[in-house]
Nucleic acid binder design. Structure first.
Length: 470
RNA sequence: GGUGGGUUGGCCGAGAGGCGAGGCAACGGACUGCAAAUCCGUUUACACGGGUUCAAAUCCCGUACCCACCUCCA
Protein backbone atom coordinates (compact mmCIF):
# COMPACT_ATOMS: atom_id res chain seq x y z
CA UNK A 1 0.00 0.00 0.00
CA UNK A 2 1.13 3.53 -0.64
CA UNK A 3 0.28 6.55 1.42
CA UNK A 4 -3.39 7.49 1.40
CA UNK A 5 -4.49 10.83 2.76
CA UNK A 6 -7.85 12.33 3.58
CA UNK A 7 -8.45 15.13 1.12
CA UNK A 8 -10.65 17.76 2.68
CA UNK A 9 -11.64 19.16 -0.71
CA UNK A 10 -13.30 15.92 -1.84
CA UNK A 11 -13.86 14.55 1.70
CA UNK A 12 -12.36 11.23 0.71
CA UNK A 13 -9.29 9.22 1.49
CA UNK A 14 -7.23 9.12 -1.68
CA UNK A 15 -3.86 7.65 -2.67
CA UNK A 16 -1.01 10.10 -3.02
CA UNK A 17 -0.33 10.62 -6.72
CA UNK A 18 2.63 13.00 -7.03
CA UNK A 19 2.82 15.44 -9.92
CA UNK A 20 6.43 14.36 -10.42
CA UNK A 21 7.01 10.69 -9.55
CA UNK A 22 9.36 10.30 -6.62
CA UNK A 23 8.97 13.86 -5.50
CA UNK A 24 6.42 15.45 -3.17
CA UNK A 25 5.80 19.16 -2.87
CA UNK A 26 3.99 20.35 0.22
CA UNK A 27 2.85 23.82 1.14
CA UNK A 28 1.48 24.42 4.59
CA UNK A 29 0.42 27.74 5.93
CA UNK A 30 2.82 28.97 8.52
CA UNK A 31 2.24 31.48 11.21
CA UNK A 32 1.28 35.09 11.36
CA UNK A 33 4.12 36.10 13.63
CA UNK A 34 2.19 38.37 15.94
CA UNK A 35 3.13 36.41 19.07
CA UNK A 36 5.21 33.45 20.20
CA UNK A 37 3.83 30.08 19.07
CA UNK A 38 1.49 28.19 21.39
CA UNK A 39 1.13 24.44 21.53
CA UNK A 40 -1.80 24.52 19.11
CA UNK A 41 0.37 26.20 16.49
CA UNK A 42 3.14 23.72 17.02
CA UNK A 43 0.75 20.80 16.68
CA UNK A 44 0.54 21.64 12.99
CA UNK A 45 4.32 21.71 12.68
CA UNK A 46 4.59 18.33 14.36
CA UNK A 47 1.90 16.83 12.11
CA UNK A 48 3.68 17.95 8.96
CA UNK A 49 7.05 16.93 10.37
CA UNK A 50 5.72 13.39 10.80
CA UNK A 51 4.31 13.45 7.25
CA UNK A 52 7.71 14.56 5.95
CA UNK A 53 9.55 11.84 7.87
CA UNK A 54 7.19 9.15 6.62
CA UNK A 55 7.46 10.29 3.00
CA UNK A 56 11.23 10.49 3.19
CA UNK A 57 11.42 7.00 4.60
CA UNK A 58 9.36 5.87 1.62
CA UNK A 59 12.09 7.35 -0.56
CA UNK A 60 10.41 10.53 -1.73
CA UNK A 61 12.30 13.72 -2.31
CA UNK A 62 10.18 16.02 -0.14
CA UNK A 63 10.03 19.77 -0.44
CA UNK A 64 8.13 21.63 2.19
CA UNK A 65 7.25 25.27 1.96
CA UNK A 66 5.75 27.09 4.93
CA UNK A 67 5.22 30.80 4.76
CA UNK A 68 5.82 33.35 7.46
CA UNK A 69 3.19 36.05 7.39
CA UNK A 70 5.26 38.94 8.68
CA UNK A 71 2.83 41.75 7.95
CA UNK A 72 -0.78 42.12 9.00
CA UNK A 73 -3.11 44.32 11.08
CA UNK A 74 -2.17 42.77 14.38
CA UNK A 75 1.58 42.96 13.82
CA UNK A 76 1.29 46.63 12.92
CA UNK A 77 -0.96 47.24 15.94
CA UNK A 78 1.40 45.46 18.29
CA UNK A 79 4.37 47.45 17.02
CA UNK A 80 2.48 50.68 17.59
CA UNK A 81 1.44 49.52 21.05
CA UNK A 82 5.01 48.66 22.04
CA UNK A 83 6.50 51.73 20.42
CA UNK A 84 8.69 49.64 18.15
CA UNK A 85 8.68 48.98 14.42
CA UNK A 86 6.22 46.36 13.21
CA UNK A 87 9.12 44.33 11.85
CA UNK A 88 10.67 44.11 15.31
CA UNK A 89 7.55 42.23 16.39
CA UNK A 90 7.64 40.01 13.33
CA UNK A 91 11.31 39.06 13.56
CA UNK A 92 11.17 38.40 17.29
CA UNK A 93 8.25 36.04 16.95
CA UNK A 94 9.71 34.36 13.92
CA UNK A 95 12.75 33.51 16.03
CA UNK A 96 10.44 32.16 18.75
CA UNK A 97 8.82 29.94 16.12
CA UNK A 98 12.20 28.62 15.04
CA UNK A 99 13.11 27.94 18.66
CA UNK A 100 9.88 25.95 19.03
CA UNK A 101 10.68 23.85 15.94
CA UNK A 102 14.07 23.12 17.43
CA UNK A 103 12.80 22.26 20.90
CA UNK A 104 10.25 19.79 19.54
CA UNK A 105 12.58 18.21 17.02
CA UNK A 106 10.82 19.50 13.90
CA UNK A 107 13.06 19.92 10.93
CA UNK A 108 12.52 23.42 9.50
CA UNK A 109 10.66 23.68 6.19
CA UNK A 110 12.81 23.39 3.06
CA UNK A 111 11.89 26.97 2.25
CA UNK A 112 10.25 29.42 4.60
CA UNK A 113 9.42 32.51 2.56
CA UNK A 114 8.26 35.74 4.15
CA UNK A 115 5.29 37.56 2.71
CA UNK A 116 7.09 40.90 2.62
CA UNK A 117 9.83 39.39 0.48
CA UNK A 118 7.41 38.47 -2.31
CA UNK A 119 5.59 41.66 -3.16
CA UNK A 120 6.69 41.64 -6.85
CA UNK A 121 5.31 38.10 -7.26
CA UNK A 122 2.03 39.25 -5.74
CA UNK A 123 1.85 42.25 -8.05
CA UNK A 124 2.38 39.99 -11.06
CA UNK A 125 -0.36 37.72 -9.88
CA UNK A 126 -2.78 40.61 -9.40
CA UNK A 127 -1.98 41.84 -12.91
CA UNK A 128 -2.77 38.40 -14.27
CA UNK A 129 -6.03 38.24 -12.33
CA UNK A 130 -7.08 41.71 -13.45
CA UNK A 131 -6.21 40.89 -17.07
CA UNK A 132 -8.31 37.74 -16.87
CA UNK A 133 -11.24 39.63 -15.40
CA UNK A 134 -11.14 38.08 -11.95
CA UNK A 135 -9.85 41.05 -9.93
CA UNK A 136 -10.19 44.81 -9.92
CA UNK A 137 -8.86 47.87 -8.10
CA UNK A 138 -11.25 49.26 -5.51
CA UNK A 139 -13.87 51.56 -6.93
CA UNK A 140 -13.47 54.01 -4.02
CA UNK A 141 -9.82 54.87 -4.68
CA UNK A 142 -8.62 53.24 -1.46
CA UNK A 143 -5.82 51.44 -3.27
CA UNK A 144 -7.28 48.06 -2.34
CA UNK A 145 -7.43 45.33 -4.97
CA UNK A 146 -10.24 42.78 -4.73
CA UNK A 147 -10.90 39.34 -6.09
CA UNK A 148 -14.21 39.21 -7.93
CA UNK A 149 -15.93 36.12 -6.53
CA UNK A 150 -18.83 36.37 -8.98
CA UNK A 151 -16.40 36.03 -11.86
CA UNK A 152 -15.28 32.65 -10.61
CA UNK A 153 -18.19 30.17 -10.55
CA UNK A 154 -16.38 27.40 -8.64
CA UNK A 155 -15.88 29.76 -5.67
CA UNK A 156 -16.80 27.81 -2.55
CA UNK A 157 -15.67 24.45 -3.93
CA UNK A 158 -13.18 23.77 -1.15
CA UNK A 159 -15.49 24.41 1.77
CA UNK A 160 -18.63 23.23 -0.01
CA UNK A 161 -20.50 26.48 0.37
CA UNK A 162 -22.45 28.57 -2.04
CA UNK A 163 -21.81 32.29 -2.31
CA UNK A 164 -25.44 33.04 -1.46
CA UNK A 165 -25.09 31.46 1.96
CA UNK A 166 -21.93 33.30 2.86
CA UNK A 167 -21.75 36.36 4.98
CA UNK A 168 -19.88 39.31 3.57
CA UNK A 169 -16.11 39.55 3.92
CA UNK A 170 -15.44 42.38 6.34
CA UNK A 171 -11.77 42.78 5.42
CA UNK A 172 -12.59 46.16 3.94
CA UNK A 173 -15.58 48.48 3.75
CA UNK A 174 -17.99 47.25 1.12
CA UNK A 175 -18.05 50.59 -0.73
CA UNK A 176 -15.21 49.71 -3.04
CA UNK A 177 -16.44 46.20 -3.76
CA UNK A 178 -18.60 44.84 -6.54
CA UNK A 179 -19.92 42.15 -4.21
CA UNK A 180 -19.67 42.26 -0.43
CA UNK A 181 -18.10 38.81 -0.49
CA UNK A 182 -15.20 39.93 -2.64
CA UNK A 183 -12.00 39.68 -0.64
CA UNK A 184 -8.88 41.81 -0.60
CA UNK A 185 -5.86 40.66 -2.57
CA UNK A 186 -4.07 43.82 -1.58
CA UNK A 187 -4.75 46.51 0.97
CA UNK A 188 -4.09 50.16 0.19
CA UNK A 189 -2.09 52.05 2.78
CA UNK A 190 -4.11 53.90 5.38
CA UNK A 191 -3.07 57.28 6.78
CA UNK A 192 -2.30 56.00 10.27
CA UNK A 193 -0.17 53.09 9.13
CA UNK A 194 3.61 53.41 9.04
CA UNK A 195 5.23 54.17 5.69
CA UNK A 196 7.55 51.21 6.24
CA UNK A 197 4.53 48.86 6.15
CA UNK A 198 3.73 49.66 2.54
CA UNK A 199 5.13 48.88 -0.88
CA UNK A 200 4.62 50.58 -4.23
CA UNK A 201 2.26 49.03 -6.77
CA UNK A 202 0.53 50.21 -9.95
CA UNK A 203 -2.49 50.94 -7.71
CA UNK A 204 -0.63 52.96 -5.10
CA UNK A 205 1.23 52.03 -1.92
CA UNK A 206 -0.13 49.22 0.17
CA UNK A 207 0.47 45.82 1.67
CA UNK A 208 -0.35 42.17 1.03
CA UNK A 209 -3.85 40.94 1.79
CA UNK A 210 -2.81 37.65 3.39
CA UNK A 211 -4.42 35.14 1.02
CA UNK A 212 -2.43 36.27 -1.97
CA UNK A 213 0.99 35.63 -0.49
CA UNK A 214 0.36 31.90 -0.25
CA UNK A 215 -0.78 31.61 -3.85
CA UNK A 216 2.21 33.60 -5.07
CA UNK A 217 4.79 31.79 -2.95
CA UNK A 218 3.41 28.30 -3.53
CA UNK A 219 3.69 28.88 -7.28
CA UNK A 220 7.18 30.32 -6.98
CA UNK A 221 8.65 27.50 -4.91
CA UNK A 222 6.55 24.50 -5.90
CA UNK A 223 5.24 25.35 -9.35
CA UNK A 224 1.71 25.87 -10.65
CA UNK A 225 0.62 22.41 -9.55
CA UNK A 226 1.84 20.62 -6.44
CA UNK A 227 0.88 17.70 -4.26
CA UNK A 228 -0.32 18.66 -0.81
CA UNK A 229 -1.57 21.87 0.69
CA UNK A 230 -2.01 21.83 4.42
CA UNK A 231 -2.78 23.89 7.43
CA UNK A 232 -5.06 24.13 10.41
CA UNK A 233 -8.72 23.38 9.89
CA UNK A 234 -9.55 26.95 10.82
CA UNK A 235 -7.86 28.10 7.62
CA UNK A 236 -10.10 26.10 5.36
CA UNK A 237 -12.42 29.04 4.89
CA UNK A 238 -11.82 31.74 3.93
CA UNK A 239 -8.05 31.51 3.61
CA UNK A 240 -7.65 28.28 1.66
CA UNK A 241 -10.82 28.81 -0.32
CA UNK A 242 -9.49 32.16 -1.42
CA UNK A 243 -6.05 30.82 -2.27
CA UNK A 244 -7.60 28.14 -4.40
CA UNK A 245 -9.82 30.63 -6.22
CA UNK A 246 -6.95 33.05 -6.89
CA UNK A 247 -4.56 30.46 -8.16
CA UNK A 248 -7.04 28.63 -10.35
CA UNK A 249 -8.43 31.86 -11.70
CA UNK A 250 -4.86 32.79 -12.58
CA UNK A 251 -4.61 29.58 -14.58
CA UNK A 252 -2.81 27.30 -12.13
CA UNK A 253 -4.09 23.84 -11.21
CA UNK A 254 -2.75 24.36 -7.65
CA UNK A 255 -2.86 21.71 -4.89
CA UNK A 256 -3.93 18.12 -5.58
CA UNK A 257 -4.75 17.24 -1.98
CA UNK A 258 -5.88 19.44 0.88
CA UNK A 259 -4.90 18.28 4.33
CA UNK A 260 -6.21 19.98 7.45
CA UNK A 261 -5.24 19.21 11.01
CA UNK A 262 -7.79 19.56 13.80
CA UNK A 263 -7.46 22.14 16.54
CA UNK A 264 -6.06 21.83 20.02
CA UNK A 265 -8.68 23.00 22.51
CA UNK A 266 -8.26 24.31 26.00
CA UNK A 267 -11.38 24.68 28.10
CA UNK A 268 -13.47 23.31 25.22
CA UNK A 269 -12.61 26.02 22.80
CA UNK A 270 -9.81 26.40 20.32
CA UNK A 271 -6.56 27.63 21.77
CA UNK A 272 -6.17 31.12 20.43
CA UNK A 273 -4.78 34.47 21.31
CA UNK A 274 -8.08 36.24 20.96
CA UNK A 275 -9.76 33.91 23.47
CA UNK A 276 -6.74 34.16 25.74
CA UNK A 277 -6.52 30.43 26.46
CA UNK A 278 -3.01 29.91 25.16
CA UNK A 279 -0.06 27.99 26.49
CA UNK A 280 3.17 28.76 24.71
CA UNK A 281 5.57 26.03 23.75
CA UNK A 282 8.22 27.69 25.90
CA UNK A 283 5.97 27.50 28.99
CA UNK A 284 4.89 23.89 28.59
CA UNK A 285 8.40 22.68 27.96
CA UNK A 286 9.42 23.97 31.37
CA UNK A 287 6.94 21.62 33.02
CA UNK A 288 7.29 18.49 30.95
CA UNK A 289 10.17 17.14 28.82
CA UNK A 290 9.95 18.36 25.24
CA UNK A 291 9.86 14.79 23.94
CA UNK A 292 6.76 14.18 26.09
CA UNK A 293 5.05 17.24 24.62
CA UNK A 294 5.86 15.98 21.16
CA UNK A 295 4.47 12.55 22.05
CA UNK A 296 1.30 14.19 23.34
CA UNK A 297 0.80 16.15 20.13
CA UNK A 298 1.65 13.19 17.89
CA UNK A 299 -0.34 10.51 19.70
CA UNK A 300 -3.82 11.64 18.70
CA UNK A 301 -4.89 11.32 15.08
CA UNK A 302 -4.20 14.60 13.29
CA UNK A 303 -7.87 15.01 12.36
CA UNK A 304 -9.08 14.62 15.94
CA UNK A 305 -9.44 17.51 18.32
CA UNK A 306 -7.03 17.37 21.23
CA UNK A 307 -8.75 18.54 24.37
CA UNK A 308 -5.78 19.79 26.36
CA UNK A 309 -5.49 18.86 30.01
CA UNK A 310 -2.66 18.67 32.50
CA UNK A 311 -3.64 15.09 33.25
CA UNK A 312 -3.45 13.83 29.70
CA UNK A 313 -0.17 15.66 29.19
CA UNK A 314 1.21 13.99 32.31
CA UNK A 315 -0.04 10.66 31.03
CA UNK A 316 1.79 11.20 27.77
CA UNK A 317 4.94 11.94 29.74
CA UNK A 318 4.57 8.65 31.67
CA UNK A 319 4.05 6.65 28.51
CA UNK A 320 6.95 8.28 26.75
CA UNK A 321 9.32 7.68 29.62
CA UNK A 322 8.30 4.03 29.72
CA UNK A 323 9.22 3.73 26.06
CA UNK A 324 12.45 5.63 26.66
CA UNK A 325 13.17 3.29 29.54
CA UNK A 326 12.99 0.29 27.27
CA UNK A 327 15.14 1.88 24.59
CA UNK A 328 17.90 2.95 26.95
CA UNK A 329 17.91 -0.31 28.90
CA UNK A 330 17.96 -2.40 25.76
CA UNK A 331 20.64 -0.23 24.15
CA UNK A 332 22.90 -0.57 27.17
CA UNK A 333 22.64 -4.33 26.75
CA UNK A 334 22.85 -4.82 22.97
CA UNK A 335 24.00 -1.48 21.55
CA UNK A 336 22.08 1.06 19.50
CA UNK A 337 20.80 -1.29 16.79
CA UNK A 338 20.53 1.41 14.14
CA UNK A 339 18.72 0.69 10.90
CA UNK A 340 15.99 -1.53 12.34
CA UNK A 341 12.97 -2.64 10.39
CA UNK A 342 9.54 -1.08 10.38
CA UNK A 343 6.87 -3.73 11.11
CA UNK A 344 4.30 -4.03 8.31
CA UNK A 345 1.43 -3.23 10.69
CA UNK A 346 3.07 0.09 11.54
CA UNK A 347 3.56 0.92 7.87
CA UNK A 348 -0.03 0.03 7.08
CA UNK A 349 -1.28 2.30 9.83
CA UNK A 350 0.84 5.21 8.67
CA UNK A 351 -0.15 4.71 5.06
CA UNK A 352 -3.77 4.86 6.12
CA UNK A 353 -4.03 8.61 6.49
CA UNK A 354 -1.24 8.76 9.10
CA UNK A 355 -3.06 6.64 11.67
CA UNK A 356 -0.56 7.31 14.41
CA UNK A 357 -2.73 5.84 17.21
CA UNK A 358 -2.76 2.46 15.45
CA UNK A 359 0.94 2.83 14.67
CA UNK A 360 1.68 3.54 18.34
CA UNK A 361 -0.16 0.37 19.31
CA UNK A 362 2.45 -1.49 17.23
CA UNK A 363 5.21 0.40 19.03
CA UNK A 364 3.70 -0.55 22.39
CA UNK A 365 3.42 -4.21 21.41
CA UNK A 366 7.01 -4.28 20.26
CA UNK A 367 8.15 -2.54 23.44
CA UNK A 368 6.23 -5.04 25.57
CA UNK A 369 7.76 -8.05 23.85
CA UNK A 370 11.16 -6.35 24.04
CA UNK A 371 10.76 -5.86 27.77
CA UNK A 372 10.14 -9.58 28.16
CA UNK A 373 13.28 -10.39 26.17
CA UNK A 374 15.26 -7.97 28.28
CA UNK A 375 14.95 -10.29 31.25
CA UNK A 376 16.91 -12.96 29.37
CA UNK A 377 19.90 -10.84 28.48
CA UNK A 378 21.26 -10.03 25.04
CA UNK A 379 19.72 -11.80 22.08
CA UNK A 380 19.08 -11.32 18.39
CA UNK A 381 15.38 -11.02 19.10
CA UNK A 382 16.09 -8.19 21.50
CA UNK A 383 18.29 -6.49 18.92
CA UNK A 384 15.49 -6.77 16.37
CA UNK A 385 12.92 -5.42 18.82
CA UNK A 386 15.08 -2.45 19.77
CA UNK A 387 15.94 -1.70 16.16
CA UNK A 388 12.35 -1.77 15.11
CA UNK A 389 11.12 0.30 18.04
CA UNK A 390 13.73 2.93 17.24
CA UNK A 391 12.87 2.90 13.54
CA UNK A 392 9.19 3.43 14.33
CA UNK A 393 9.91 6.13 16.88
CA UNK A 394 12.18 7.83 14.37
CA UNK A 395 9.25 8.19 11.96
CA UNK A 396 7.37 9.97 14.71
CA UNK A 397 10.38 12.04 15.70
CA UNK A 398 10.48 10.36 19.10
CA UNK A 399 13.61 8.20 19.03
CA UNK A 400 15.27 8.83 22.41
CA UNK A 401 18.70 7.94 20.99
CA UNK A 402 18.42 10.44 18.18
CA UNK A 403 21.13 13.08 18.70
CA UNK A 404 18.39 15.69 18.95
CA UNK A 405 17.06 14.19 22.19
CA UNK A 406 20.15 12.37 23.45
CA UNK A 407 22.74 14.97 22.54
CA UNK A 408 22.81 17.28 25.51
CA UNK A 409 21.89 14.62 27.99
CA UNK A 410 24.65 12.07 27.75
CA UNK A 411 27.69 14.08 26.89
CA UNK A 412 29.86 16.79 28.28
CA UNK A 413 32.30 17.02 31.17
CA UNK A 414 29.59 17.84 33.72
CA UNK A 415 27.75 14.66 32.84
CA UNK A 416 30.99 12.66 33.09
CA UNK A 417 31.74 14.15 36.50
CA UNK A 418 28.24 13.38 37.73
CA UNK A 419 28.56 9.84 36.40
CA UNK A 420 31.80 9.29 38.29
CA UNK A 421 30.30 10.52 41.56
CA UNK A 422 27.12 8.48 41.19
CA UNK A 423 29.12 5.40 40.31
CA UNK A 424 31.15 5.74 43.51
CA UNK A 425 27.98 5.93 45.57
CA UNK A 426 26.55 2.94 43.73
CA UNK A 427 29.71 0.97 44.41
CA UNK A 428 29.41 1.76 48.13
CA UNK A 429 25.79 0.73 48.02
CA UNK A 430 26.68 -2.55 46.34
CA UNK A 431 29.25 -3.24 49.06
CA UNK A 432 26.71 -2.45 51.78
CA UNK A 433 24.16 -4.73 50.17
CA UNK A 434 26.67 -7.52 49.86
CA UNK A 435 27.37 -7.10 53.58
CA UNK A 436 23.59 -7.12 54.23
CA UNK A 437 23.86 -3.64 55.69
CA UNK A 438 20.57 -2.57 54.15
CA UNK A 439 20.22 0.54 56.26
CA UNK A 440 23.42 1.94 54.77
CA UNK A 441 22.41 0.84 51.27
CA UNK A 442 19.02 2.51 51.54
CA UNK A 443 20.58 5.69 52.87
CA UNK A 444 22.65 5.96 49.70
CA UNK A 445 19.61 5.30 47.53
CA UNK A 446 17.63 7.96 49.40
CA UNK A 447 20.44 10.46 48.94
CA UNK A 448 20.41 9.88 45.22
CA UNK A 449 16.63 10.01 45.03
CA UNK A 450 16.60 13.34 46.84
CA UNK A 451 19.12 14.63 44.34
CA UNK A 452 16.78 13.62 41.50
CA UNK A 453 18.52 10.42 40.47
CA UNK A 454 16.52 7.23 40.13
CA UNK A 455 18.07 3.83 40.77
CA UNK A 456 17.04 0.58 39.14
CA UNK A 457 18.60 -2.75 40.06
CA UNK A 458 19.09 -5.04 37.11
CA UNK A 459 20.79 -8.40 36.67
CA UNK A 460 23.73 -6.41 35.25
CA UNK A 461 23.95 -4.17 38.32
CA UNK A 462 22.39 -0.86 39.26
CA UNK A 463 21.41 1.65 36.58
CA UNK A 464 20.84 5.29 37.27
CA UNK A 465 18.93 7.97 35.42
CA UNK A 466 18.32 11.63 36.05
CA UNK A 467 14.60 12.04 36.58
CA UNK A 468 13.06 14.42 34.08
CA UNK A 469 9.66 14.81 35.66
CA UNK A 470 9.28 18.36 36.71
C1' G B 1 -29.36 30.67 9.17
C1' G B 2 -25.33 27.91 6.04
C1' U B 3 -20.98 24.20 5.82
C1' G B 4 -18.12 20.35 8.10
C1' G B 5 -16.70 17.18 12.35
C1' G B 6 -17.79 14.87 16.96
C1' U B 7 -20.28 12.20 21.72
C1' U B 8 -16.50 5.15 23.14
C1' G B 9 -14.92 1.96 29.86
C1' G B 10 -12.38 5.56 36.18
C1' C B 11 -9.35 8.67 32.48
C1' C B 12 -6.86 9.37 27.53
C1' G B 13 -7.67 7.49 22.83
C1' A B 14 -8.35 4.12 18.09
C1' G B 15 -11.92 1.43 15.26
C1' A B 16 -16.38 1.94 11.45
C1' G B 17 -21.63 -4.24 10.23
C1' G B 18 -19.65 -10.33 13.27
C1' C B 19 -13.48 -11.19 15.66
C1' G B 20 -11.85 -7.58 23.46
C1' A B 21 -6.70 -1.51 19.30
C1' G B 22 -3.40 0.58 22.54
C1' G B 23 -2.08 3.53 26.72
C1' C B 24 -2.75 5.65 31.76
C1' A B 25 -4.82 4.76 36.53
C1' A B 26 -6.57 1.05 40.09
C1' C B 27 -6.43 -3.77 42.31
C1' G B 28 -4.15 -8.79 42.85
C1' G B 29 0.22 -11.73 41.87
C1' A B 30 5.57 -12.66 40.33
C1' C B 31 10.55 -10.66 40.88
C1' U B 32 13.35 -7.77 45.00
C1' G B 33 16.57 -7.67 51.54
C1' C B 34 12.84 -3.56 50.85
C1' A B 35 12.02 -0.56 46.75
C1' A B 36 12.27 1.00 41.69
C1' A B 37 11.90 -0.97 36.94
C1' U B 38 9.73 -5.08 34.47
C1' C B 39 6.37 -9.21 33.72
C1' C B 40 1.50 -11.91 34.48
C1' G B 41 -3.67 -11.42 35.70
C1' U B 42 -8.42 -8.57 36.71
C1' U B 43 -11.95 -4.29 35.34
C1' U B 44 -16.41 -5.94 28.28
C1' A B 45 -17.45 0.62 26.93
C1' C B 46 -19.57 2.92 22.56
C1' A B 47 -24.99 10.11 24.08
C1' C B 48 -30.48 9.08 23.82
C1' G B 49 -35.04 7.11 21.09
C1' G B 50 -36.62 4.38 17.00
C1' G B 51 -35.48 1.38 12.57
C1' U B 52 -32.69 -2.03 8.89
C1' U B 53 -30.09 -6.83 9.52
C1' C B 54 -29.20 -13.64 11.17
C1' A B 55 -25.81 -9.91 13.48
C1' A B 56 -25.21 -2.60 14.84
C1' A B 57 -20.44 1.19 18.75
C1' U B 58 -20.28 0.81 13.27
C1' C B 59 -25.78 1.56 8.42
C1' C B 60 -30.70 4.62 8.27
C1' C B 61 -34.27 8.23 10.65
C1' G B 62 -35.06 11.43 14.72
C1' U B 63 -33.49 13.98 19.41
C1' A B 64 -29.97 16.17 22.77
C1' C B 65 -25.33 18.11 23.63
C1' C B 66 -20.19 19.61 22.01
C1' C B 67 -16.37 21.67 18.52
C1' A B 68 -14.71 24.29 14.08
C1' C B 69 -15.65 27.62 10.00
C1' C B 70 -18.94 31.44 7.60
C1' U B 71 -14.52 37.92 11.67
C1' C B 72 -7.98 37.65 12.54
C1' C B 73 -6.62 32.53 13.40
C1' A B 74 -2.43 26.37 13.05
Amino acid sequence: MTLHLYDSATRQIRPLDPVVPGRVGIYHCGLTVQGPPHIGHIRKEVVFDVLRRWLERAGYDVRIVANVTDIDDKIIAKGAENGEPWFAVAYRNERALHAAYEVLGCEPPTYEPRATGHVPEMIEMMETLIARGHAYPAQDGSGDVYFDVRSWPPYGELSNQSIEDMQEAPDAPADGKRDPRDFALWKGRKEEEPESASWPTPWGRGRPGWHLECSAMAAKYLGPEFDIHGGGLDLRFPHHENELAQSRAAGQPFARVWMHNAMLNLGSSKMSKSVGNTLTVAEVVKRVPAIALRYYLVAAHYRSIIEYSEESLAEAATTMSRIEGFVTRAASLVGRCDGGEIPPAFAEAMDDDLSVPAALAVVQDTVASGQRLLGHGASDDLRAALGSVRAMLDVLGLDPLDPHWAGSRDHGPAQAALGALVQQLLDHRAEARAAKDFAAADRIRDQLTTAGIAIEDTPQGARWTVKEDR
